[in-house]
Amino acid sequence: MAKPKIATTSLAGCFGCHMSILDIDERLVDLIEVIDFDKSPIDDIKTFTDRCAVGLVEGGCANEENVDVLRSFREYCDILVALGGCAINGDIPSLRNTVPLEECIREAYFDGPSVYNPDGVIPNDKELPLLLDKVYPCSEVVKIDYSIPGCPPHAEAIWIVLNALLKGEPIEIPYEYMRYD
């Protein structure tokens, strides 16, 4: 029987949650005995090759590309997991949510104290994804089946949740791994 597949991605996040995945440490070896990674920065597969049992999404949606990737995760993954604070509520990137987009850009390219932009350009290449008006938590964009809180989540929490999901068992994060910070 083919091993179930897992996909992971980082949207508007800092890859900290992926670091936490790696923090599963030597048990990663046990993990790849029973699963294959599909689209994921861990194996550098860029596009889905197959349906996945579980998708782990780090980060919220700050731009159109994030939304596009999230949509494909929803399409290809049976169970979609919001991994970490940014995916759940936008977290650090969403600090901009109380400021209009235009002002954010002005601050980033003109007014910020550390800006050096003598030509006064705002990068605007077609390759650059357009920004959304604010950073959206994943659950507002697509249906999310499960969330693992934490900034980043504890490796143990990820391990426990993944195991439970793969075995189809009820998920419960033990108190000591339940955290928002």
Binding site: L101, K126, L130, D133, K134
Partner: peptide, 11 residues
Amino acid sequence: ALAAGEDIAGR
């Protein structure tokens, strides 16, 4: 969600 971004980028 994209309206402001499109407006600023002009595309």
